[in-house]
C-alpha cells in the first residue's frame, strides 16, 4: 500500500483554456448587472468630483491648501486618489461576497472543480475577472476626470494601471480569505468598516500623509492604497506630486509583491478548499 497525494497533485496538470472558460462564465453573469455597474462607475466619480473636488476644493484652495499640497489645486490633488479608491472598491467588492458565495452559497466553484478545470485556474479566472471589472471602472473614471480637466497629462492613463494593480493586489488576498472562511459571520463587514474605510481616509487620498502624527504614519505606509495613490498622483501630476523616483520604484515593488503573494496564497487556498 502506498501513500499518495500529500499535496493535491490532481491540480498539477493544466487544462488548456480552463482559466479563460472561468472568465467567460463570470463575464456572462456580469451582463446581468452591466447597466447598474457601469452607471455606478460613471455616477460615483461625478458625485465625488462635484462634492469634494469642486465644493470642498474651492475652500481648500482659498485657504492654506495650495501650499500644503505643493502648489497643486485640490481637485487635481484628489482626482488620482479618487480613481484609485474607486478601483479598490470594485476589486474588494467583487472578491468579497460574490466570490465567497461561489464557495459557500451557490457552490458554483464546486461545480467547476468537477470538470477538468483546476482550482488554481478557478482562482486565476476569478482574479482576472476582478481585474477586468476594475479596469473597466478605472477607464470610465479616467474619462470622467478628463471631462473635469483633472486627468493629468500624457502619463495620466497610467493611473488606470496603478489603480488596477492596487485593487488586484488586495482582491487576491480577499480571494485567499474566501477560500479559508467556512462561515462568513460578518467578516466582510469588519473588513469594509475597519480596514477599507480607514485605509481610504488615511492613505494620502484627501490630505498628505505628513499631516498624520508621526507615531501613526505607519498606518499609511502599510496601506496598499497609499502606495497606489503615490503612483497615480505621480502619473497625473509628474514632479508636482513630489514623490522621489526611488520611492516610486518601491511603491511598484510593494504592490507587485502584494499581488504575487496574494495569487500564490489564493491558489493554494482554492486547492485546499476544492480538493479535499
Amino acid at each position: 500500500m502506498t501513500v499518495h497525494d500529500t499535496s493535491p497533485a490532481t491540480a498539477a496538470s493544466r487544462w488548456p483554456g480552463g482559466t479563460r472558460a472561468v472568465v467567460e462564465y463570470l463575464v456572462l453573469g456580469w451582463r446581468r448587472y452591466l447597466v447598474s455597474s457601469l452607471s455606478e462607475a460613471v455616477g460615483a466619480p461625478l458625485l465625488y468630483l462635484l462634492a469634494l473636488g469642486l465644493g470642498l476644493g474651492a475652500l481648500v484652495d482659498r485657504g492654506s491648501g495650495g501650499g500644503a499640497l505643493g502648489g497643486v489645486g485640490y481637485l487635481d490633488y484628489i482626482a488620482p486618489a479618487l480613481l484609485t479608491a474607486a478601483a479598490l472598491q470594485v476589486g474588494v467588492g467583487e472578491s468579497a461576497y460574490p466570490a465567497y458565495s461561489r464557495f459557500k452559497w451557490t457552490r458554483v466553484f464546486l461545480g467547476i472543480s468537477a470538470t477538468p478545470v483546476s482550482p488554481r485556474q478557478i482562482a486565476d479566472g476569478q482574479l482576472l475577472f476582478v481585474a477586468l471589472r476594475v479596469v473597466t471602472g478605472a477607464v470610465l473614471y479616467y474619462l470622467v476626470l478628463l471631462a473635469f480637466g483633472a486627468a493629468g497629462g500624457g502619463w495620466g492613463p497610467l493611473m488606470v494601471v496603478s489603480g488596477t494593480l492596487t485593487a488586484c493586489g488586495c482582491a487576491a488576498w480577499i480571494l485567499a480569505l474566501d477560500s479559508v472562511l467556512t462561515s462568513e459571520g460578518g467578516v466582510f463587514n469588519v473588513l469594509f468598516r475597519f480596514v477599507i474605510v480607514p485605509m481610504t481616509l488615511f492613505s494620502g487620498s484627501f490630505f498628505p500623509v505628513d499631516r498624520i502624527p508621526a507615531a501613526l504614519r505607519w498606518v499609511a505606509w502599510v496601506s496598499p492604497l497609499w502606495h497606489g495613490n503615490e503612483l497615480a498622483r505621480t502619473a497625473a501630476l509628474g514632479g508636482a506630486a513630489g514623490v522621489p523616483a526611488a520611492r516610486l520604484l518601491l511603491h511598484a515593488v510593494v504592490l507587485l509583491a502584494l499581488l504575487g503573494t496574494g495569487v500564490a496564497v489564493a491558489r493554494r487556498g482554492f486547492d485546499r478548499r476544492l480538493l479535499r
Partner: peptide
C-alpha cells in the same frame, strides 16, 4: 470523481490514476 485525494490504497478510474491524471479523467466523467 478525482476531487478528493485518497489517503492510501489503489484507485484506477478509466485505467488511470487520479493522483496523476485527475484532469484527464475528469474530462471523461
Amino acid at each position: 470523481a478525482c476531487v478528493s485525494p485518497r489517503t492510501s490504497g489503489e484507485l484506477r478510474i478509466l485505467g488511470r490514476d487520479p493522483a496523476v491524471d485527475g484532469v484527464a479523467i475528469r474530462a471523461r466523467l
